[in-house]
């Protein structure tokens, strides 16, 4: 006997249901995008607790602005834009991100509750991944803010060039140029830290 599964509702269907007052529909949307949005914000602000707070605020604002959402746009890119702007606003208010001395030790341990990579990872692999994540975070902070943003939006959030252009309010040509330069600079920074191709050592 074949059991048929109902297809998952689309973002548009959920948005329409939420606009008609369905809290569960918006909850469904939140659960669908909470992890990717949180990962983007966390990569930008580098503080797990703060990232979660900003992400919740972004979702709450998105709900309150749902009536102004253009259904011709992608809900995910609209949501990422709100979250991205919240993170940028926070960083601008703080001017420069501050890290307590006791958090900048050699192990670079954050209070992340990490998940495993798509495949099952051994504890050693998990520790390596966490360490590498810290290295990449540090390298990202050495980039220009717009380079950092475009890399996170493209490779962390998986947005298209057009969606990045909408989020950052720049042209698509500018996005391509920024991405190219940002990748080169990130590679330069990581290579300068001793992470040359096929390098076995980690700083």
């Amino acid at each position: 006997m074949t059991v048929l599964k109902a297809p998952a509702p689309t973002d548009d269907q959920l948005v329409q249901a939420a606009l008609q007052g369905s809290a569960d529909a918006y909850r469904f949307l939140v659960e669908r995008y909470q992890r990717p949005v949180l990962s983007v914000v966390a990569r930008m602000v580098r503080d797990p607790g703060l990232a979660e707070d900003l992400t919740q605020e972004a979702f709450a604002r998105a709900f309150q602005s749902l009536r102004s959402f253009d259904p011709d746009r992608s809900f995910s890119s609209w949501l990422f834009k709100i979250a991205h702007n919240r993170a940028i606003d926070h960083l601008r208010r703080k001017r420069r991100p501050m890290v307590p001395l006791e958090a900048s030790d050699a192990s670079g341990q954050d209070s992340w509750e990490v998940i495993e990579a798509p495949e099952h990872q051994s504890p050693l692999r998990q520790a390596e991944s966490a360490e590498l994540s810290e290295v990449i975070d540090r390298a990202l902070t050495e980039l220009r803010p717009n380079y950092r943003q475009v890399l996170i939006l493209r490779f962390q959030a998986g947005l298209s060039y057009q969606e990045i252009a909408d989020t950052m309010e720049i042209s698509m040509a500018s996005v391509k140029v920024l991405l190219h330069r940002a990748r080169k600079q990130l590679a330069t920074v990581l290579t300068a830290e001793g992470l040359a191709p096929n390098s076995d050592s980690m700083p």
């Binding site: 919740q56 979702f59 709450a60 709900f63 990490v114 798509p118």
Partner: peptide, 22 residues
């Protein structure tokens, strides 16, 4: 590379808190 990096896990009551804030 980015896909292989660990990402933070939202708290279990994340969506609940969002709906309360909204």
């Amino acid at each position: 590379l980015f896909g292989s990096l660990p990402t933070p896990v939202p708290s279990t009551d994340f969506s609940q808190r969002v709906l309360q804030r909204a």
